[in-house]
């Protein structure tokens, strides 16, 4: 009782300082994520420049639809899609660059190869809750599958539906399984995470053109660098700005404001001899290591067969 005043103030002091520490802890939690992200980004930036070139790039792609006939004239599956599947050891059903048959007003059609557009105002990057998908300095949008929690919000947000999910355990050839994972190669693929086209920045660092560009038999795909203002399809080199202007380049769904880094030059394959009313359809792509025939990326059925052929149990029986 005699130290009542003293006690009270000490108690008050302890309560208040505890309150202050608590408030500081709560208020500083955002910092954890900020600090972590800086660390992660620092790692990426170092790897970006580890090849010794200090040169900044701004990758982009130009797709000349005048040259694209969806490979129906060659009687093969679309070679861009196929090269991408083979080069990235892609799990079954994924078409990071997919050729769509797009209708024309007179009843005809044109073929439209569609990679990820690597938007500058990318809806997928905006909504990712953990920063697993992010912009690189060179303009590409990558996914870190080691961080992705698989909420698929980015898939809901992408207005071009260019993202794919590893619904089950992904099937890949042994080459992929033994590789060291990086967000650029994305293999070995990880169950329960999202994948997509990465502009083949790892291939370009080795001085080569992306798989799809190199494989296009019609030379319809151009990889470009907005900083140096050049683009190339492997056969010719163009001055990008003039090339886009002269060929009336457009971007798909420009009005959405996503600012894609992929331009299209309008056409229907006329320069490779395809008429707009050509009835031939695309040949189906194939995944040589995909043992899961019956797996459909648009319709979910479970179980769609009596057994699931590639599950862990099956392998270890």
């Amino acid at each position: 009782m005699r130290e009542k005043g003293n006690n009270l103030s000490r108690r008050d002091f302890i309560i208040r300082s505890a309150g202050a520490v608590g408030a500081l802890t709560i208020l500083s939690t955002p910092l954890i994520s900020v600090l972590n992200r800086d660390k992660a980004l620092a790692g990426e930036a170092n790897s970006q420049h580890s090849d010794g070139t200090a040169k900044k790039r701004q990758w982009c792609m130009v797709i000349d639809l005048k040259h694209c006939d969806g490979c129906v004239g060659l009687d093969t599956p679309p070679q861009c899609t196929q090269a991408c599947i083979m080069g990235h050891y892609k799990p079954n059903g994924m078409k990071w660059i997919e050729v769509f048959k797009h209708p024309l007003p007179g009843g005809g059609s044109f073929f439209m190869p569609t990679p990820c557009f690597h938007c500058e105002n990318a809806p997928c990057v905006n909504v990712c809750p953990v920063g697993a998908t992010y912009h690189m300095e060179d303009g590409s949008v990558l996914i870190d599958q080691r961080r992705c929690i698989g909420c698929r919000f980015c898939m809901a947000a992408c207005p071009y539906q260019r993202r794919f999910f590893n619904w089950g355990t992904p099937v890949q050839p042994p080459e992929a399984a033994f590789a060291e994972y990086t967000p650029e190669t994305q293999f070995p693929a990880i169950k329960g995470t999202v994948m997509k086209c990465n502009f083949c920045t790892h291939v370009m660092r080795a001085g080569k053109l992306p798989f799809c560009v190199a494989a296009c038999p019609r030379k319809a795909l151009y990889m470009g660098d907005l900083v140096e203002d050049v683009g190339s399809n492997g056969a010719e080199v163009v001055k990008l700005s003039r090339f886009l202007d002269e060929n009336n380049a457009y971007r798909y769904k420009e009005s959405l404001g996503t600012q894609p880094r992929v331009w299209f030059l309008p056409g229907h394959g006329e320069l490779v001899g395809r008429r707009p009313d050509d009835p031939r359809e695309l040949q189906p792509s194939f995944w040589p290591w995909g043992r899961d025939e019956g797996f459909d990326r648009s319709v979910g059925v479970w179980p769609w067969k009596e057994s699931v052929p590639w599950t862990w149990e099956e392998k270890h029986k």
Partner: peptide
């Protein structure tokens, strides 16, 4: 429900370690 829904429930704490305030999920 969202925890059941995600592809990697084992990584659900990433939402705290790497949380981005720009995302509606946060």
């Amino acid at each position: 429900m969202p925890i059941i829904d995600v592809g990697r429930p084992d990584r659900i704490l990433n939402l705290i370690w790497f949380g981005r305030f720009q995302s509606p999920i946060t």
